[in-house]
Amino acid sequence: MSRRHHFHTDHLGHSVSVTVQTGHTAVVEVLVDGKETGYARTQGDRPVTVPVELPTDPPTTVTVRATPGPGVPHCLLITEADGEPLVMAPRAY
């Protein structure tokens, strides 16, 4: 049975949202400012990383690391500049 989990954070003035659909094949969709900028699939509970760019001047590359399981999924936003992971807050909708 698949289920959708949503995560969100703001970084450098931009909205970053992630949807993780769990199931046999996990699907991760990344939206920046409401536009899909990244997509990945993984088998089972394997973590997946999705590189995306924030539309800053110059563009800023960040990576979303989603872990579908086991248990409740979670997401991190990792910046290339300092490599410091930011925990993305779960959203209920």
Rank of each mutant, 00 (worst) to 15 (best):
G44H: 10
V62E: 10
V64A: 04
S15V: 08
V64L: 12
T19P: 00
D45R: 07
G44K: 05
T42Q: 13
P85R: 14
V20N: 14
I78G: 03
T56M: 10
V72G: 05
G71W: 06
T61F: 05
V48F: 12
P68M: 05
M1S: 11
T79R: 11
H14S: 05
V72D: 13
V16K: 00
P90S: 08
T22A: 01
H11L: 08
P68K: 06
V27C: 12
H11Y: 13
L76R: 09
R65Q: 09
H8E: 08
H11F: 10
G13L: 01
V30D: 04
T56S: 14
V28A: 10
T67D: 09
C75P: 00
V16M: 01
Q43L: 13
R4L: 08
V87Y: 09
D82K: 07
T9L: 07
V64P: 03
T42H: 11
T37A: 12
Y93E: 07
F7G: 09
R4I: 07
V50G: 09
R65G: 03
T25S: 11
L54E: 02
P68H: 10
R91D: 03
P59C: 08
E53M: 11
G23C: 09
P90D: 05
V18Y: 01
T42P: 08
A92H: 08
T67K: 08
E29T: 15
R4C: 07
S15G: 09
L54M: 01
R65C: 04
R46Y: 11
L12R: 14
E36R: 15
A92M: 03
G34K: 11
E36Q: 15
H14N: 14
V72I: 07
L54F: 02
V52C: 12
T61R: 15
T60M: 10
Y93M: 01
G83N: 06
Q43Y: 14
R4V: 05
S2F: 00
T67C: 06
G34E: 13
R46V: 03
P55M: 06
P90R: 14
T79K: 06
T9N: 07
V18P: 02
